[in-house]
């Protein structure tokens, strides 16, 4: 499966009436995860997050594509 670049957030069992809600739920959770951390701590949290999610995705072709997009223009 190629890298999915379309909106894809959802929570099983949760009913959404507005299309922006699942993405906004995710984004708030992401920012909350970093609340009150120092910059160094946040960098560590981000690194761990990437490792956890990468392992979950597993498919290295997908990860390669994501890494290329993330690095472009950096």
């Amino acid at each position: 499966m190629p890298l999915n670049l379309n909106p894809n957030f959802f929570e099983p069992g949760k009913r959404y009436f507005r299309d922006f809600s699942p993405g906004d739920d995710f984004y708030e959770m992401l920012i909350e995860t970093h609340r009150d951390l120092t910059e160094a701590q946040s960098a560590q949290v981000n690194a761990k997050l990437i490792l956890l999610l990468s392992n979950h995705i597993g498919d290295i072709t997908v990860l390669r594509e994501a890494m290329a997009i993330a690095r472009a223009g950096a």
């Binding site: 670049l5 379309n6 993405g23």
Partner: peptide, 26 residues
Amino acid sequence: SPVSLAFRNAVLALAQDHPFARKLVN
């Protein structure tokens, strides 16, 4: 916070080309 700003700017940078990021722009 700096990390919150970094995420925000990353969303905006990706939004030009990728639909999923556009949906996150708030």
